[in-house]
Write a protein that binds this DNA or RNA. Structure first.
Lengths: 292, 292
DNA sequence: GGCATTGATAAACCTAGCTTATGAATGGAT
DNA sequence: ATCCATTCATAAGCTAGGTTTATCAATGCC
């Protein structure tokens, strides 16, 4: 046995509460005629009147009284549930491991300081998160910023420049010309970014590197290897500011190259007004700007 | 802050319960596309997804889980309230005093025997009850059966025939011809029904009765006066079967006249399928037939 | 006695919400 | 491995449900 039309039930609920069709209509943002119609419809469906029409006033019948209680209770539940502010103040971020460990993680504490009510849950994902099937508020992606259905904000370009340890620099003598770099071992010779940098530096003579890659993919690992003096790592200077400032890593050349791609903050277009997301977006972009 | 569209909430409730849009659609008697549309609409309104779309299955998001509980609870309340059998098993009858006291009251016990779950509340009203402003299930009315919006079943014609006590008959000698009736005192000479009977009997010579009416209107009172031997009362033989059978009243002539009107069982057209009303209608009409 | 207010009703209109049709993805059976 | 069944998404198009507008009847109130 199906429920009567919900519009009729809603009209009844308001009318019962006010004992007045006109006031109910005002509350519901419709006309008195519409309420009258809906109540009549409900009575037709139920097969029994729910209101007695007395002079300029309406009174619940017994059947009406029986229904009014549970109905109002039900709508109270719905109103409570659907009008409650979004109290889920957990911001879930899907990040790329490199950006997360070298840039975001050290800074995210400041975001929490600024927004103490927002808890942050960071998750580093190997694959590109699909907002439709996984529950993330925002993600950091690598690419060109074109993802249909998603809004993307550029956080920073994917940049890199050779870095070595002071020990290694001492060992191979001062580097004045980028070409001299080729004498040094590369930590991950197969790193595709290297070509971008060498191209931009105008180095065409590229003898194959003998050494097997020490670390693949994880920039943090490459950095550690570089610090240990194992060779040249092509790293994002924005990620290793501290190491550069403390001298644990040395950036021999000013030239910083990119592969044309960037890191992007992305989230579903439809959630662009979500408070948590707005707050995080503003914070991230400000951090990125301040970083340059 | 208004609720999201109720259709969307309902679709969500079913979908959340089944964790499956197709099953929800089946339950709601609509297509899967409609459920999909409503869920999407809800998510648009809320500004947050309520389901994660995973391969061939859907899962509630945190927001969805937060809403699903209260929503199902609310709909359970509504379903309980609106699909509960009409447990108001009190049949409220508005009757005319004459029919009530002389015919209905003595018989209504049998109705209750036949329908033990139905309580009967009879009320004798001076005015014709308005179903729109007063809470009655059925009424007995006097008239021609034409009341807009009401369904009317003829219970019995308004019939009358002269009745006297045995004492009075003895006193005035045997009555062979209706014209002889005019010698007797009439208990209520102003009773408008008398003319109908006399017309039908072909009596045109009608000397004015000297006696003031003893009782007006209440047939029971007239009957009591007649039994006491105070004169002729024009009464409905159906109402005084016992008195006639026991000889306390005598019906001198077979002729029974009517004023062209009847007693009718009436109730709102819209409630013609109500269980209580159907039961009572069947019973009353069967009683009336058995009575003839 | 006139006015303000309430609910009922008829007519006309419009869009919310449905169906139909189709596609994409994939889990499971053979 | 392949095919099929099943799931949800989406676009297009239609229809009736629900709304507004306009008006009436009734009556409580000043």
């Amino acid at each position: 046995m199906p429920l009567p039309p919900l519009a009729a039930i809603r009209a009844f609920e308001a009318a019962a509460r006010h004992a007045n069709f006109t006031k109910a209509a005002t509350e519901l943002g419709m006309t008195q005629a519409a309420v009258s119609y809906q109540i009549k419809l409900l009575e037709d469906v139920l097969g029994t009147p729910v209101f007695l029409r007395q002079n300029r006033r309406v009174t619940l019948t017994r059947a009406g009284r029986r229904l009014a209680g549970p109905t109002t209770e039900a709508f109270d539940l719905l109103r409570d549930a659907y009008t409650a502010p979004d109290d889920d103040m957990t911001l879930t971020i899907s990040t790329l491991v490199t950006l997360a460990s070298n840039w975001l993680a050290p800074r995210v504490g400041r975001f929490q300081m600024a927004h103490p009510q927002i808890a942050v849950r960071m998750s580093t994902e190997a694959h590109s998160v699909d907002f439709k099937s996984e529950e993330f508020d925002v993600a950091i992606r690598y690419g060109d910023g074109q993802w249909p259905g998603l809004r993307a904000h550029e956080v920073m370009p994917v940049a890199f420049t050779p870095m070595i340890s002071p020990t290694l620099l001492e060992q191979y003598g001062p580097l004045h010309d980028p070409a001299e770099l080729m004498r040094l071992p590369f930590i991950d010779p197969e790193d595709r970014n290297i070509a971008f940098w060498l191209d931009e530096a105008g180095i065409s003579d590229r003898p194959a590197k003998a050494n097997a890659p020490i670390m693949i993919g994880a920039q943090t690992g490459e950095a550690a290897a570089a610090i240990a003096g194992h060779g040249v790592a092509f790293l994002n200077p924005a990620f290793f500011r501290i190491e550069l400032e403390t001298g644990r890593l040395i950036q021999p050349f000013d030239q910083v190259s990119t592969d044309g791609k960037s890191y992007w903050l992305v989230y579903p277009e439809s959630r662009r007004h979500n408070l948590k997301i707005v707050a995080f977006r503003k914070w991230v972009l400000a951090e990125a700007v301040a970083d340059q």
